[in-house]
Simulated scan of single mutants.
Amino acid sequence: MGADAPPSRPSAPRRVLRRLAVALSGEGGAATAEYAVATMAAVGFAGLLVIILRGDEVRGILTDLVRNALTVG
Rank of each mutant, 00 (worst) to 15 (best):
D64W: 10
R19N: 13
G29Q: 05
G44I: 07
A12T: 08
A3D: 08
S25A: 13
Y35L: 06
G28I: 00
T32H: 04
P7N: 09
A23G: 04
V72W: 07
A31I: 03
A33I: 06
L20N: 03
E57K: 05
I51T: 13
L70M: 09
S8M: 01
A30D: 03
R67V: 15
A5C: 04
T71E: 09
T39G: 10
E27Y: 02
S11N: 13
P10W: 05
V50K: 12
I51S: 14
G44Q: 11
V58T: 14
A5E: 11
L53A: 10
A41G: 00
N68A: 15
G26T: 10
G47K: 08
M1E: 00
G28F: 04
R18F: 07
P6Y: 04
P7T: 09
M40L: 15
R54I: 00
G2W: 01
V72Y: 07
F45S: 08
A36M: 02
L48G: 13
A33L: 15
R15S: 02
S11K: 08
I51E: 05
R59H: 14
A3K: 07
R15G: 01
D56T: 14
R54G: 09
A23S: 13
G28Y: 01
L48V: 07
E57W: 05
S25T: 04
P7H: 06
A42N: 09
G60N: 15
R15Y: 00
G60L: 15
V22I: 14
A23R: 10
T39A: 14
R14S: 12
L65M: 11
A69N: 11
A30Q: 06
V43R: 14
E34F: 02
R59L: 14
G29W: 02
D56F: 11
A36I: 03
T39L: 09
L70F: 03
V16M: 10
L49F: 08
T71N: 11
T39E: 05
A33P: 01
P6R: 09
D4C: 07
A30S: 08
R67Y: 01
M40C: 13
S8E: 11
L49V: 00
G55S: 15
G47L: 15
E57L: 03
E34C: 04
A38Q: 14
R59A: 14
L24H: 08
V43M: 13
D64C: 06
I61N: 07
V72G: 04
I51K: 14
L20K: 05
G55R: 15
L62H: 00
S25Y: 02
G60H: 15
P6G: 09
I51F: 12
E27S: 13
L48K: 13
R14E: 13
P7C: 06
L70D: 03
R15P: 00
A5D: 11
T39I: 03
E57A: 08
A36D: 06
R15A: 00
G44E: 12
N68W: 07
G26A: 01
G44T: 07
G26E: 05
R19W: 05
A41D: 06
T32I: 05
A46M: 06
A30N: 01
I52Y: 14
